[in-house]
Design a protein around this nucleic acid. Sequence first.
DNA 1: GAGCACTGC
Length: 699
Amino acid sequence: MAFWKPGTEKPSFVEDEEGGIVLMSNNLSSSSSSSFGYANIEKQRQRLPVYKYRTEILYLVENHATTIIVGETGSGKTTQIPQYLKEAGWAEGGRVIACTQPRRLAVQSVSKRVADEMGVNLGDEVGYTIRFEDHTTSGVTSVKFLTDGVLIREMMEDPLLTKYSVIMVDEAHERSISTDILLGLLKKIQRRRPELRLIISSATIEAKAMFNFFNTSKKRQAPEGSTQGPKLEPAILSVEGRGFSVKIHYVEEPVSDYIRSVVSTILLINEREPPGDVLVFLTGQDDIETAIKLLAEEAHSHQKNSSGLLPLPLYSGLSRAEQELIFTPTPRGKRKVILSTNIAETSLTLEARLLGVVYVIDSGFSKQKFYNPISDIESLVVAPISKASARQRSGRAGRVRPGKCYRLYTEDYFLKQMPGEGIPEMQRSNLVSTVIQLKALGIDNILGFDWPSPPSPQAMIRALEVLYSLQILDDDAKLTSPTGFQVAELPLDPMISKMILASSELGCSDEIITIAAVLSIQSVWVIARGVQKEQDEAKLRFAAAEGDHITFLNVYKGFLESKKSSQWCYKNFLNYQSMKKVVEIRDQLKRIARRLGITLKSCEGDIDAVRKAVTAGFFANACRLEPHSNGVFKTVRGSEEVYIHPSSVLFRVNPKWVVYQSIVSTERQYMRNVVTINPSWLTEAAPHFYQNRQNNMSL
DNA sequence: GAGCACTGC
């Protein structure tokens, strides 16, 4: 395969003038204030690129309602700007400076870093809040880091977020659902609180969209010469990052098989390039395992080419121990080849550990979620990435010294066909949770809400329909009382919340809250590669004839009986981290349930009560086995052809009637988490929904 | 007998 270096591609990152290894602001090295003197920390802070813009940033924030900061990785914006604001007096008079992040881990590590730099205890002047963890002190904490989801929750108590003087929304370019909801709500708040300042931190490509979204100056022209309030037109400021130049190489002709191209590019690098680790971006576990297998085959046939290569897979499904492998230093004479999913594109924990990477290979694809409002099914599809993602990926090559990025697509494709930015998650998702959050905040005109990127009306209408069928919204699309308001209190998928409410009447809330906690995490099982048989046997020890939900009750019971032992989890192929999370979520739900007046009551083995409660939440996901078919089910709602997922305890059992929690859509559409039901429960649980479907219901 | 990019309240 031949690569060429185009003259037109500008390096994404400027070379650091000082050379050598630089300390990046989001470097996770746990340097604490005790190991560095104050002067040292001050010097480090001043060396960050953002420091040059300190005065300018403060001026812009003072004079503009919204300031958009475009900052590359390593500019120091996240840790420094909140401190500048504090130093400039924005936290005086009991006011609080907030900085939101999309991920919990980022909140924790950034707040720790800032507390260290300020020489204070985390939880005093500098604090953080994430789900399950509130490390702030009311009246003391003036710089607060939090996930955007937590800030949205705070609006339910304080709709105008009155205690905050400045809110910085970090990583806004990622365009996650909660960031987009937050941006829409903050824009509304600004109208009522002109003194509130917003800082939107974004990558280059999204800055223009953010500017347009927050530019309300045309509609609400402030009087000329008026000194009252900040300018409504947003300011944009660009801050350079701290990376090295990355040379971009494209393929001359489109590749037909990107996995084979990845392998030949790895061999090419190994043959021609000086030492340095390789980071490869692929789409998923399958791709990664295929590539590793092909590399091993190459090692047999062309020993020379592949000598010294150390292939390492990296994806979220790996156990912690397996992920640790990439953290070990590269042995002398070896070259690590990390084959990764998108996890390496955003994960902060990994960032500090990928510093040996000098070469990046970008397949140009990733797995992305898409939502079909007609079938109401979300699926994961391999799709081309955006230019923004491509830049992010190539940037991973230039963290310690100048690097190279090999893009397995043509330059022409990059320039002319690759979309500039990805489709915001909001436009690729089921919206029931989003709608319920807005309703809970008193926003009635959902269809007219001012979004950064509005979702399709079909998706909105589908969400309203589902919520109506669950009797969470009424004929006027208002929250019902008490059901709707109670559902909004629970931080869960509305169907799960509805199931909990139903369990209160059915006398099985103790069991259902356990099920709810399990359903709201990924999976309690570990991914057992090569030991499926053993895992299946372990599963059988918990399996219940009624289905997965009841099986989860057995798993939870066993976990408690083991005294929450990690050893026990290991023996039973259960994910210990997941089980601990189940306990945590269960405790939170218990607290909320008590507040909602739901008394925790066990049904003492009355499994029908549990299945009825599940049906009350998930009746819309009912399926019937096709007679004389080999495990083909049809959804009652849309007559879609679906199958029971092989991971379910009901796989191959194929009972006549089931409800499922969700569908994973791959080659086939598989139902995940399935429980048997009696079809008469459907009309009982949702007469309104099944009224017109009576004909389909006959047994 | 198949598979799961990543978050979050």
